[in-house]
Design a protein around this nucleic acid. Structure first.
Lengths: 132, 132, 132, 132
DNA sequence: TTTT
DNA sequence: TTTT
């Protein structure tokens, strides 16, 4: 997918530690949820906060980073694409799931691990060349 | 919601004409779905296209614009926020729905209506002032 | 401008306190710069960090929020539009300036002011209505 | 750069054909500009359109795609990062340049080339694996 | 220099 | 259910 066609960005906090699995071929998969908070005033002036929980899935290197650095409550910025799946559960009921498949993960708020080993922050990028 | 915390952007095509309703207070609501296409090569070199269908809801003025200008197949760029709702259907089954609540709508590919009355393209914006 | 046509998003830190001015009509204007850091490995394996400084301008309510809450070093997420201006300076030299005109500002990393008075976090939004 | 920290997105039209160069190491570089149009009403009700011209640079494969498919007037969606450079011109005057370095390019409005050879639309992506 |  |  050209990411520009289908892009989600969330800035919020992790609800729990990521759940880590491994595919049969040895690829890591991380799942976690992110809360985004919406604060507004109701018609009668009361302040209301609504929290949305978003399911996020990370594959491969991003799953490994998630496993190493993400903790409950951690503030993150993520971007990815929006995917919808359906499956039939063990009771034969058809289920619909919407997930954000990560392609970027940024830890916010300083400290707490990612700075001890900043390797994952580096892009797969070489030094820019001069034009000929 | 600070839109920067929860933002979805899609560029794709409408599957059908929008469905239009009106709230009890007279506010318009438009619902439609947008297809985003994902083309990649499988492990054995075959070209595969996967289509994702995203449910979109527009309120108020954006619903009116949707009603006037959106047609089946139309290419659009939209941005909005990702919301998750659940409800119990007429058979008592709990249903989960994920929708993109629009806050921006841009028609792509030229012509076909929106240019006949470009009013809706104008921002609620006044002439910039000089600094004192 | 339909924001979807011209959108910049930055996550980084303030270089200095915002500079605040007021227009002749009493509207506040805030200017500040945000550093975004780019870390990569050079061809010979050395880790290199490049910092980009982006000029940001905020008008009206966003300028007031910037004045109240933004401090040197503060981590923020902003979005806005990219504008290019030119002017002739006091020495008669033509100058080109590129700025990000804010339309969203989010303070990251917790604490330090914005939570003491969260009013500015609220959207101009009323309670959602049910569909008729 | 983690793209999530510094991201620009533009939807607009090319002013001219891209200019193509090649680095000493044989890498292609494409430069072009994109117009984004801003329509609003002035204080006295007059409709005003302001055009912003953004300098865009594409490297490597994106430069090759730009060379092959982009034409004057073409409607595109791009995303990239915002960079600021300065250099001294042949008259010894220091110049500042702001550019958008592309990492995504999507041609809008159908037809006109990119469909004759859709290879470039495919992601470097393999078939998703099932979880173990 | 574009486009609607 | 779309589009290329």
């Amino acid at each position: 997918m050209y990411a520009i066609r289908n892009k989600v960005q969330l800035i919020g906090n992790l609800g729990q530690l990521p759940e880590i699995r491994t595919t049969e071929t040895g690829k890591k998969v991380a799942r976690f949820s992110i809360a985004t908070n919406d604060t507004y005033r109701s018609a009668n002036g009361e302040r209301i906060t609504q929290t949305s929980w978003h399911n996020v899935i990370a594959w491969g290197k991003l799953a490994e980073i998630s496993e190493k650095y993400l903790t409950k409550g951690r503030e993150v910025a993520v971007s990815g694409k929006l995917v919808h799946r359906n499956y039939t559960d063990k009771n034969g009921v058809k289920r619909y799931v919407t997930e954000v498949v990560l392609n970027e993960l940024l830890m916010l708020g300083g400290g707490k691990g990612q700075n001890e080993n900043p390797d994952w922050q580096e892009e797969e990028q070489v030094e820019p060349e001069a034009e000929g």
